[in-house]
Design a protein around this nucleic acid. Structure first.
Length: 592
RNA sequence: GGCCCGGUAGCUCAGUUGAAUAGAGCAAUUGCCUUCUAAGCAAUAGGUCAUUGGUUUGAAUCCAAUCCGGGUCACCA
């Protein structure tokens, strides 16, 4: 498929022809030639030295000459430096490559085996607005779903709304006590922020009440348990579970506000879901699992009536699956939800985009499902991503160090506007186009920033330094794309003319080699579930293009043929950039 | 303490199927807007790849030990 995989068998055959031994493709190493050496692809010779009892120089010379004689249409020359045989590919081969790829639609790549796949991501709590960590989750989830789709799978995107529980009741109680009937409409505050403010206020009130109780001589532990606002909250949770109409109505009203806010943000960042699950509707689902697990002997009951699973044989711990009062715990709910999803979607694979703090939980989930003999258990995968941290450490709601998603986007958009006006390049844009452009740049910067890092690693966000449109950023790639489109527009409007001939320059070859690796990169990104590979790739393509085309003009090309070639490279480069960025959920503008 | 993840330039990150002088971007210094977009290009400087030992023709990459940071091991979700 790629040039490397075309070269490898040829070299294998050459080795066999020359030295008689049987060589396998696995034994040979072919890599891109480093820029400081002459050549396009390099064969590493060291591994043959011992086996064939010849010096690397001699081997390189013999193999190089053989390849030149037998495959002259592919190799034009070679050189040997130390243990490396550098091979130069013919211009013709590169031209053919371009011709074959010129009209290829890079967004439509379809391998044979297609699966039904669920990607669950986002999964917010309905008591506070989305923050930077959620954004990393959303961008990763969306991107991975898109990569899966492009590679031929049927993908369903789902979210689970964590819409019930003690944390939800906290903001409800506080609004009831201090809200004075205010609403998002009456205050003009976005619904999720509105509710989130009461959640924060709960923390303050709670803290004050504890302080008061302790001033009266109560110890800290008791004070935390007996603070009136906490007691009220716990009562509200019970009322909620018993279906108290007033509490349910309040709950629905406030969650409604949050969803309105969420939807606005989701729309802005381009997240969408085929199906939303609600914890309030699924949290009882795991019950039958407990019964079935006991019957199968996978679970066991302790004297107090609580139900457990012993995973010590698998190197894990004992895990509770049902409390002694018969209520289910987190893991049990997830068992039920996995089953429900299978019922509805008959998935082959189910991905969970969840932060790394839940690695253990997800391991347990999969293991229990396997032990219960569920057919879908093996298809469950945890797509782990690391937390987004500040230079000072983790973001903490209590300390007010959380970077809010909406604020972040607004700030970036403002910055995009200032920068664009400063550069003064968009005088012919109308107000609507300008607004779209600022959105495109702001979200491009944010998404690229969060996606360019290996998902598994936790990453540090520095509010002061992170906002940048220069260098290894989304806007740099967007800018390159806009530039290429501009070249193509100008060529269309005023065709230039040309003479003379010249070989393809080294840098152009580098670019072509890079473009040729696009689909390999997509496959690798899929295999490793790692969109950052695509982000890095897109940057490399843009960088290589800029480096070359700033020095060498298309219009002043020495020959007609040369100019056509460069225009083809422009088309292909912009196409590859556009599809790579599409897989990251980043728009690329025609002009900027 | 058990298990998991990480430690690469001042900062943020690539590079780990072993391979040539370990790469980008930011920050610093310098040069380039009368030629297709300067959100750019070119150049300089910046490294004991946490430490030690091992395997190998060859180690940031594989193995072992140690140090440092984080996560997790809840009748929280």
């Amino acid at each position: 498929m790629g040039i490397v995989s075309e070269i490898k068998p040829i070299i294998t055959k050459a080795l066999t022809d020359l030295y008689g031994n049987n060589f396998d493709e696995k034994d040979i190493t072919v890599s891109l030639t480093k820029p400081e050496f002459e050549g396009d692809y390099t064969l590493v010779l060291f591994s043959f030295v011992k086996q064939l009892k010849k010096s690397p120089e001699q081997l390189g010379k013999e193999i190089g000459e053989y390849l030149l004689n037998s495959n002259g249409e592919l190799f034009s020359s070679f050189n040997v430096i130390k243990g490396f045989l550098n091979l130069v590919i013919t211009n013709n081969y590169f031209l053919n490559f371009l011709q074959q790829n010129y009209y290829r639609d890079h967004s439509a790549y379809q391998p044979a085996n297609q699966k039904r796949v669920i990607v669950e991501y986002s999964s917010p709590n309905t008591n506070k607005p989305l923050h930077l960590g959620h954004l990393r989750n959303n961008f990763l989830g969306w991107s991975i779903a898109e990569i899966l789709k492009t590679t031929g799978h049927t993908v369903y995107k789902t979210a689970i709304m964590n819409d019930r529980g003690i944390h939800i009741c906290k903001s409800m109680v506080t609004w009831q006590k201090f809200g004075e009937g205010k609403t998002p409409e009456s205050t003009g505050i976005k619904g999720d922020h509105f509710v989130g403010d009461y959640y924060v206020q709960f923390g303050e009130e709670y803290k004050n009440e504890i302080a008061l109780l302790m001033a009266d001589g109560m110890n800290k532990e008791d004070a935390e348990k007996n603070a009136p606002i906490m007691l009220e909250t716990q009562k509200m949770l019970l009322d909620w579970e018993n279906g108290d109409p007033a509490v349910r109505a309040l709950w629905q009203k406030m969650n409604g506000w949050v969803y309105e806010g969420f939807n606005e943000t989701y729309k802005k960042i381009g997240s969408d879901f085929d199906k939303n699950y609600f914890e309030s509707e699924t949290y009882l689902l795991g019950k039958e699992f407990v019964v079935a697990g006991l019957q199968k002997g996978v679970f066991y009951k302790k004297e107090d009536g609580s139900v457990w699973i012993d995973l010590t044989a698998d190197g894990l711990d004992e895990k509770i699956v049902q409390r002694k009062d018969g209520t289910s715990v987190y893991i049990t709910q997830d068992l039920g939800l996995a089953d429900k999803k299978y019922e509805e979607f008959q998935y082959d694979e189910s991905f969970y985009v969840i932060a790394d703090e839940q690695i253990y939980h997800m391991k347990v989930l999969k293991l229990i499902l396997q032990k219960l003999g569920k057919p879908y258990a093996d298809g469950i995968f945890h797509l782990v991503y690391g937390m987004v941290e500040l230079p000072t450490g983790r973001m903490k709601t209590r300390e007010g160090t959380v970077v809010d998603a909406d604020d972040m986007i607004d700030e970036l958009k403002k910055y995009a506007r200032e920068k664009t006006e400063e550069l003064g390049k968009v005088k012919d844009f109308n107000p609507g186009e300008l607004n779209d452009l600022y959105d495109t740049i702001a979200l491009g910067a944010l998404k690229f920033f969060l996606l360019r890092v290996d998902p598994k690693k936790r990453m540090i966000f520095n509010p002061e330094e992170s906002i940048d449109f220069h260098g290894f950023t989304g806007p740099f790639i967007q800018y390159t794309h806009a530039r290429i489109k501009s070249i193509l527009r100008k060529e269309k409007a005023t065709p230039g003319h040309l003479q003379a001939k010249e070989d393809i320059l080294q840098k152009e070859k580098e670019l072509i080699v890079l473009l040729e690796q696009y689909q390999v990169t997509v496959e690798q990104a899929l295999l490793e579930h790692n969109p950052s590979l695509l982000a890095i790739y897109a940057f490399n393509v843009a960088k290589t293009f800029n480096t070359f085309y700033t020095v060498h003009s298309v219009m002043n090309a020495e020959s007609d043929e040369k100019k056509q070639l460069r225009l083809q490279i422009c088309e292909l480069t912009s196409g590859v950039i556009a599809s790579a960025m599409h897989l990251l959920g980043i728009k690329v503008p025609e002009r900027m």
